[in-house]
Design a protein around this nucleic acid. Structure first.
Length: 390
RNA sequence: GUGAUCGUAGCUCAGUUUGGUUAGAGCGCCUGGUUGUGGUCCAGGAGGUCGCGGGUUCAAAUCCCGUCGGUCACCCCA
């Protein structure tokens, strides 16, 4: 028996309905709001990510699906979407400002568990170019509306981590503070002390909670302009009744963020999406000098929190005489009526059962030229108008 | 990368503790009949490298080792 590759998933059954529903909703919603759908390659050069996400981050050091192709290229299966969109923007739309949406699989080499797979799907938005606080606002506003429709009660958590410079200063202060309190930190946090200081703040180990609670607060190290921008953004959000919760420990896993960071949490406190501002990413990648802000959603996590839409299968074509059923089939095709039919000319009883399991409304019996409404249990002579009316 | 736990028919599972005939059940599937209050019911049938590979034994689904995969947690993150 050949088993499935570890951490991959087949989207089937109810999940298929959810997935297709999400895909449709995402595309129609955001293309109508001016976001251009871009499908970038799943394969990218490794360099795109170890520069952008940050060489010290675990995504880069341990979690990339790497491969060397026959031409000796160092490739990876993309672990996230933003860097690819930034690359696309610099190649084809540099010096313009654009809105993008993307939707597709991402890959991270890590041990699977609940809400975490090696292959998973993300849907995201990016606005790249010359941008300002109104840009930040609309990314949050548009994605908030989208996710609220799907999962009411989703909470917005928001933070500002200041400029890159502020962050460097803050990390120094934080580093010194943690050094002084080294003895009270968990072993896991100690490992992060030198190369990933900020993420110690994210620790949910009880051992760390005391030290973290008394740690210097990032808001004291943020420049005035960033602070003012953040305050204006919060005011804008409040003015249209978007609720939020400020969370100073929200630093997110990717190095390229500055100022704005935010996440969406379900009522059960599952992170289903997040994003932020990345004014330096283009510089880090030597792709130019433009700013960006974006958001990404984890589709499997959303699927886990919504109900499957009802599938509408209306009609079943039953028959055991091949000439008859082919004739009806052609008639329905010509009228553009959707219908299900048996895979082969099986027992009539089996076809009845299948029709019932599919929850169709109408059963066309080609053996006797009748149509039956399975809801009302009425049988009548076949008449195509019955189907056209509905 | 670490740890816990699981893997027997398409699905849900029994059998593993204490090794011993041709490995079972329910659901589903197929065939024939029945049924027009059409989905029921009756009879029969197909379907299993017991995840995979080694080992121990006269004998392994059962014991041992390894490995792959599922689930969950840590790490990390969507």
């Amino acid at each position: 028996m050949i088993e499935q590759v570890k951490g991959t998933k087949n989207i089937s059954g109810e999940d298929s309905l959810k997935f297709l529903y999400l895909k449709d909703l995402f595309h129609s919603n955001f293309s109508q709001n001016g976001y251009n759908y871009v499908q970038t390659p799943i394969l990218e050069y490794k360099n795109l990510f170890n520069k952008s996400i940050g060489e010290s981050s675990e995504i880069v050091t341990k979690q990339m699906y790497e491969l060397i192709d026959k031409g000796g290229r160092e490739l990876v299966l993309r672990p996230e979407g933003t860097a690819s969109i930034v690359r696309y923007h610099s190649e084809f739309n540099k010096d313009t400002t654009n809105k993008y949406s993307y939707f597709g699989p991402m890959f991270r080499y890590e041990n699977p568990q609940k809400n975490r797979y090696r292959e998973f799907n993300q849907a995201g938005l990016e606005i790249i170019g010359l941008i300002d606080i109104f840009t930040d606002f609309q990314i949050i506003n548009d994605s908030f509306n989208f996710i609220q429709k799907l999962i009411p009660g989703t909470q917005l958590k928001i933070n500002t981590i200041g400029s890159i410079k502020d962050r460097e200063n803050y990390i120094k202060v934080l580093h010194n503070y943690f050094l002084d309190n080294k003895s009270d930190l968990s072993p896991e946090s100690l490992e992060k002390l030198d190369n990933n200081t900020l993420r110690i703040l994210d620790s949910n180990n009880d051992i760390d909670s005391g030290v973290i609670n008394n740690a210097p607060n990032i808001s004291d190290y943020i420049n005035t302009e960033s602070k003012n921008n953040f305050d204006s953004l919060l005011k804008l959000l409040s003015s249209i009744n978007i609720g939020y919760k400020i969370d100073n420990s929200l630093v997110r896993g990717l190095d390229y963020y500055n100022d704005l960071t935010f996440e969406f949490h379900t009522p059960d406190n599952i992170v289903i999406g997040g994003g932020g501002r990345y004014d330096n990413l283009s510089n880090i990648l030597s792709l130019g000098n433009f700013k960006g802000v974006g958001v990404a959603f984890g589709l499997e996590r959303i699927m886990d929190n919504i109900n499957a839409p009802v599938s509408e299968k209306k009609c079943y074509l039953l028959g055991s005489n091949i000439e008859n059923i082919v004739k009806y089939s052609k008639l329905l095709d010509d009228h553009n009526i959707h219908y299900c039919k048996p895979s082969r000319l099986s027992k009539e009883n089996s076809q009845f059962k299948e029709a019932n399991n599919l929850n169709v409304t109408y059963l066309i019996n080609t053996n006797e030229d009748t149509i039956k409404n399975l809801l009302t249990k009425e049988t009548m002579d076949f008449d195509i108008r019955v189907l056209n009316e509905n």
